[in-house]
Amino acid sequence: MRGVVEVEELVKEFRTFERREGLFGAIRDLFSRQYRNRRAVDRISFRIGRGEMVGYIGPNGAGKSTTIKMLTGILVPTSGRILANGFVPWRERTRYTQTIGVVFGQRTQLWWDIAVVESFQLLKKIYEVSESDYRARMKHFDEILELGRYLHTPVRKLSLGERMRCDVAAALLHNPPLVFLDEPTIGLDIVAKEHIREFLREVNRNYGTTMLLTTHDLSDIEELCARLMILDHGRLLFDGGLADLKNRFWREAAVRLYLKDREQGQRLSQLNLHGIGCEKLEELVWRLHFAREEWTAAEVIRRVVNAVEVRDIAIEEQSIEEVVKRIYLGEVLEESRR
């Protein structure tokens, strides 16, 4: 299957020069500079199919924005290949950008001083959107994002949430088949986030729009993306579904037991549970943790309830945040390399 986006062995290096310290150093810098190549994106390859919504995450400085900037044609790759919507982004920039939508959460795409609706009118002309399409889309956008209330306000007077709604709508005005969103929910309150997520979901469902979004808010991914790519130090560490991520990196499971009385605690500690960690959280609350390779939660529970009287049982679900945090910290990586 041909992907909407195809990336092969993509590399981006930046040449930075290292400043020497102090006045004397600054003077030496004038004459001879020490340059260093920093690899922001290191040989990544992936393919995105039509209609996919992909989350692109990684700690700060991992190379997410650099990747997005190469995919949108802003930066020229050092080496490697990108084909998006059938174009090489940087080489056929003007024709390519006609077919994509871009949202930068940190920076508005709209004209600062003019009213929102006039920005939309300009974009309509730039992307050559027909009057009827424009009307239909604006109506649709208004239903979900409630743009109507501030259409006549200049962009600089909007709150962050309002501005972001406008920015997302602006990027989708020409109904592009491919959309890149760089931190679209950064700094937004829960209602604004929800609005924007709902809008993106709706657009994806209605038009089969392919979307790639970077975020630090993993709930964005959980709610929107079936697929997730994790990047760190410029390298792609993981590419797959959320469930897959948990299966692969969720090594340790835990069961929480609420015991009937104190006596049961003693019985529990006397049980010979090989390879299962036993931890007393409160007087009657115990936590058993075990490697998922050796034990299943069902087996652990069966062993326990045969010997101990238990009032309640809770199986601890490891949160996606937890898994991702461990990946960022490099703990899980060692395991996956094995």
Binding site: T72, T97, I126
Partner: peptide
């Protein structure tokens, strides 16, 4: 970095 905005438009 305002030039990013310029480059993502089809003009």
């Amino acid at each position: 970095g305002k030039f990013d905005r310029v480059l993502v438009r089809p003009l």
